[in-house]
Every structure is written in C-alpha cells, then in structure tokens.
Simulated scan of single mutants.
Amino acid sequence: MHNDTEESRLADMPEEPQRRMPFAWFWPMLAGALVALVLRIVFSGGPGHRFSPMLGSFVYFVPAVCGGVTVYLAERIERRSWGYYLWAPWVATALFVTGTLAVFIEGIICAIVIVPLFAVMGSVGGLAMGIVCRITNWPRPALYGFALVPLLLGGIEPQLPNPDQFSQTSRTLFIAAPAARVWHSLNEARDIQPAEVGEAWAYRIGVPMPVSGVTVDTPGGRVRQVQWQKNVHFEEIITEWQPERVLKWRYRFTPESFPAGALDDHVMIGGQYFDLRDTTYTLTPRDGGTDLRIDVSWRLSTRFNWYADRVLQALLGNGSENILRFYKARSEATTAIAQAAR
C-alpha cells in the first residue's frame, strides 16, 4: 500500500525539462562544415590528378556530405522541419568555405564563385538525409555511404576526359572620338590606374587589375605585352591587324605568367580547366565618333561547365563593359585635349 502511494506521488510530479547542450542549434552545422573541411584537405591534388578540388566528385558531393552530416546530427537531437533540411546546409557550407579560407587552402576568388553551387548541393544532401531519417531506420549507414561517394569517385574521375565547352561574350559602346584615337588607346594603354577599371566585378573578388597593355613589333610579329598587378604578365599575339578597323589577338601564357598567389592556383588561366582563347576589337566609325565592339572567347573543361560558364558570362561580360568604358574615357580625354590645343 505504501509503495502504491509513493508511485502515485511520483507520477503526479511534473517532469523536469530535458537539458539541452549549449548551442545545440549550431553544432550540427559546425560538425558538417568540419567534415567537409577534412574532405577538402583530402582533395588537394593538382590539376588532372586524383582528388583535385576541381573534380565533379568534390564540387557536387562534398557539399552534399556537408549538408547530410548537418541534418543527421540535428535529427539525433530532435525532429527537424523540411525547411531546416534546406537552410541549415546553407549555413554549414558557408562555414565550410570560410574554413578553407582560414586555413589558406582556398583562394578568395574560387570561394566567392562557388558558394552558390555549394549551397544548392548542401541542401540536396540535407534533404536526402532528412528523407532517410524520416522513412528508414538506417540513417547512419546512409551517411557513411554519402561520405564514401566523393572518395571513391575522386580516385576514378581523373581517368575520364573532361568535356570542352567553348563560349564567348560581346559588348559594344559608342565613343565620342575618331577611330584613330580609339585605335591608339587600344595599342598604348599605359599606366592604368585602379580607379579607371576597379568597378569590374572580377577585380572586386580578387583578380589582379591591369597595369598596361602595349603593342610592340617583334621578330615574330606584333605582340601586345600585358602587365597586371601582383607581377602577372603575359602576351597577346596579334592575329588580325587592320588599322582603325580590327584588332584581334590570341593569348600566350607561360608558367611564369602567374606568380604563386596571384590567382587561385588550381584554376589558372591557360590551364587544364580554363583558358582565354582570343579577343577581337572592331571599330566602326559613325557620326560623332566610333562604335567599339569587343568579342571575348574562352574554353571550359570541367564537370560543371553548365555552372562555370554562367559565372564566366557574368564576370567576363561585366569585365568587357568595364574595359570599353576605360577606352572610352581615355579616347575622349585625348580628343578633348587635342581640340583644346587648337
């Protein structure tokens, strides 16, 4: 009788609230980011080698693992919403990218460019793990399977050829200056100041700004010698020369063109994954000045060309507009000076 009374009294007592770990909402995202960071360290191979960070097995599956780990650990605390499966991996992949910058294994250019794709793939991984947690009893084996996919594919993928994709962008701008002035500006672009070109998106995310671009005659033909900041230098071999009408060149890069740290090393221009092919300027005289058109073409060779090409269309399109404005300002300024001197 005494035991029944004691049990009844205990049953009537309110349950103590379950204690939760400090920052329990945050640590699954941090854990997901740390797992992805470890995988990034594994994927440190050079271009064309196993476990390169430019492989599709890294770009697609590592952020998915990041999202999957985040949701798995969060589900161990309590059931999460479908919305959580989508947004929590965004935070985790952002932490992951920040971590790669903090330990100096990723450059700012690639980090900024890849964040949107990583966020999407993180959500895919998070949603997949959320479904597994809701409808199966084996989320842990599924998580291990997620983590093994990039490791398995990272060793196989380099044996497969990368698809090549060729694209171009074009822009035109009217310049209130005669074609002769514009032509001179194209071939004698010296002492370029950051304020003249610094509005371009590419330069804002870390691409070195141009310093000069000067056409010279060499025993092998006309060459445009180009200098950028951070001691970047390369040549533009002129393939079409119609004074005051058409100027076209192809690019020639050497191993010395880009010193270490000038660009993100695994996406070097002229390398395995990306190359600038040629640029054409077309001058068309009309009343009051000259229409200047620029055409830029490039090659992409990655497993995510569909994404990288859209990024380049935006960056190179904006860069083309910016450089046309530079030539406009230079040409119109020299024209104004010449007119004032009369």
Results as ranks from 00 to 15, higher is better:
69 V>T: 06
217 D>A: 13
226 V>M: 13
295 D>R: 11
6 E>Q: 09
176 A>L: 04
1 M>R: 09
253 F>T: 06
171 R>M: 10
44 S>A: 10
89 P>L: 09
82 W>T: 12
171 R>W: 10
136 T>F: 05
310 R>T: 08
118 F>D: 14
190 R>F: 11
40 R>I: 06
251 Y>W: 12
295 D>G: 05
258 F>N: 09
207 V>M: 15
268 M>A: 13
78 E>R: 15
288 G>D: 03
269 I>G: 03
53 P>I: 00
247 L>F: 15
78 E>W: 08
287 D>T: 12
332 E>R: 07
19 R>M: 11
301 S>T: 12
30 L>E: 07
168 Q>W: 03
92 A>Y: 01
20 R>D: 05
164 D>K: 15
168 Q>T: 04
29 M>D: 10
68 G>Y: 00
17 P>K: 08
100 T>W: 02
228 W>N: 14
205 I>C: 01
303 R>V: 08
292 L>H: 01
198 G>M: 13
105 I>K: 06
263 L>V: 15
204 R>P: 03
64 A>E: 06
185 S>G: 05
142 A>T: 09
332 E>G: 08
313 Q>M: 12
52 S>T: 07
293 R>L: 06
322 N>I: 09
264 D>Q: 03
334 T>H: 06
52 S>L: 01
284 T>A: 09
59 V>S: 04
333 A>C: 05
111 A>N: 08
91 V>I: 11
135 I>V: 14
292 L>V: 05
155 G>L: 14
109 I>F: 15
92 A>D: 02
113 V>C: 07
205 I>L: 08
37 L>T: 10
53 P>V: 00
287 D>W: 09
54 M>F: 14
221 G>W: 06
148 L>A: 13
295 D>S: 11
290 T>I: 03
317 G>Q: 03
130 G>I: 01
146 F>G: 05
138 W>D: 10
149 V>G: 00
21 M>K: 07
155 G>C: 10
312 L>F: 14
50 R>H: 10
44 S>L: 04
65 V>Q: 02
224 R>K: 14
235 E>Y: 10
313 Q>K: 13
165 Q>R: 12
153 L>Q: 07
28 P>R: 04
55 L>P: 00
279 T>E: 03
289 G>S: 03
253 F>A: 10
169 T>E: 13
102 A>H: 08
335 T>L: 10
206 G>E: 11
303 R>Y: 11
53 P>C: 01
299 R>E: 06
17 P>Q: 05
80 R>M: 12
237 I>L: 05
154 G>D: 04
239 T>M: 03
47 P>Q: 01
249 W>H: 02
248 K>S: 12
185 S>V: 00
25 W>F: 15
330 R>P: 03
116 P>Y: 04
152 L>H: 06
182 V>R: 01
239 T>P: 01
292 L>P: 00
36 A>P: 01
248 K>N: 04
54 M>G: 11
210 P>W: 11
208 P>S: 07
17 P>C: 03
69 V>I: 15
26 F>D: 07
45 G>L: 08
29 M>T: 09
271 G>H: 02
242 Q>W: 03
156 I>P: 05
147 A>D: 03
319 G>L: 12
24 A>S: 15
170 S>N: 14
286 R>K: 09
3 N>K: 15
236 E>Y: 04
254 T>R: 15
184 H>W: 11
79 R>K: 11
78 E>A: 13
146 F>H: 04
4 D>M: 11
80 R>I: 12
249 W>S: 02
92 A>N: 08
277 R>G: 06
109 I>D: 06
154 G>N: 00
